[in-house]
């Protein structure tokens, strides 16, 4: 049986999703990137191979996320797509009538507006990453809470405290202040969820027509406190899809299927890639005064690709799929 692999290499998590020809879910893996994207891809590939039912062959591969180029080069991707498109595709495949996607990932947050299955508008957080997964992670750690209990605790609160959500630094000092006053933990966590939602709606979603059905996806959707805070603020039900944490990978798998639908042979290098010895090096190019930082990825002795140059001196020699 033919199947399609999607990989979402993000700043916090690296996700793998394999779906069959008829969109049946075969593999669904969520891993922490932990600052080592190559290792995350290799580990994920090895686990995907283990979990794949016998007789399944990978007929197409798509990558997305901030590390999509790197992942695409390592595995040999048929399509390398930005995460907005991937999330939009994934959302419409699960809920064809979806009109709004709220997505909060490890280091960025986005809103995608869809009408009749087409992305009509989107926005991403600008310079500020307050309110994304890595900030919640940090706060949970500081409070000594496992992140998966953070949301449960927040939902139990009936008297949330007001926390400034405009900036992560202010939010943290506000939280500490409230803790010192003796407010219970659940009220503080609930207050933080509300602050993050306020910040998201005022910055990322500013001026966007948020209409139901609304899907809430990305790693932060695991946090029940955030879902409830969104529903409170919007006054509309917010749906968290079953595969909320791996929606980018799901979208990438679908894009891969589309890409090879004309019968093209996949560029997938095979699962043995997980045993290859990848090596990444960086150097400054001294070809001109821009002194670009060039990243080169090699498998064994063989150079696979370069990027980071402005002029194309190095990257023009890359294989064609990496644009």
């Amino acid at each position: 049986m033919k199947a399609y692999l999607g990989i979402d290499l993000g700043s916090v998590s690296t996700n793998f999703f394999v779906m069959g020809q008829d969109e049946e879910v075969l593999v669904n893996i969520y891993l922490r990137t932990q600052g080592n994207p190559i290792k995350a891809v290799r580990t994920g590939l090895a686990r995907t191979q283990d979990e794949l039912p016998p007789g399944v062959t990978i007929a197409g591969v798509g990558t997305t996320g901030s590390g999509r180029q790197l992942a695409g080069i390592i595995v040999g991707a048929d399509t390398i797509k930005n995460e907005i498109t991937a999330h939009g595709v994934a959302a419409t495949s699960l809920v064809p009538t979806v009109r709004t996607v709220l997505e909060i990932g490890g280091q960025d947050s986005k809103i995608i507006i869809l009408r009749d299955g087409i992305v009509t508008d989107f926005a991403m957080n600008t310079v500020c990453a307050a309110g994304t997964g890595s900030f919640l992670d940090r706060q949970a750690e500081r409070l000594g809470l496992p992140i998966d209990q953070f949301g449960q605790l927040a939902v139990r609160s009936s008297n949330p405290v007001r926390i400034a959500g405009r900036c992560a630094v202010f939010a943290e000092s506000d939280m500490i202040h409230k803790q010192q006053l003796g407010h219970p933990m659940e009220d503080i966590t609930r207050g933080l969820c509300q602050a993050l939602v306020r910040n998201y709606l005022n910055n990322v979603a500013k001026g966007k027509a948020i209409e139901p059905p609304i899907l809430f996806q990305g790693g932060v959707a695991a946090n029940a406190g955030m879902k409830v805070a969104f529903e409170e603020a919007l006054g509309i039900e917010v749906l968290v899809p079953k595969y909320f944490a791996v929606m980018g990978a799901l979208g990438a798998a679908q894009l891969a299927q589309r890409q090879v639908s004309n019968g093209a042979e996949t560029r997938f290098r095979g699962f043995e890639v997980s045993n290859w010895d990848f090596h990444v090096s960086s150097r400054h190019c001294h070809g001109c005064s821009n002194c670009c930082e060039i990243v080169e990825i090699e498998a064994g002795e063989k150079s696979l690709a370069c990027w980071g140059d402005r002029c194309g001196r190095w990257s023009e020699q890359n294989p064609a799929q990496i644009a």
Binding site: N82, E83, V119, M124
Partner: peptide
């Protein structure tokens, strides 16, 4: 350049898909 490229790619995808369907 990552942030700029991601936004630009998504924007251009959006334009192309609007006109396909």
């Amino acid at each position: 350049e990552g942030g700029l490229i991601t936004r630009l790619e998504a924007f251009l995808d959006m334009i192309e898909w609007r006109h396909v369907s």
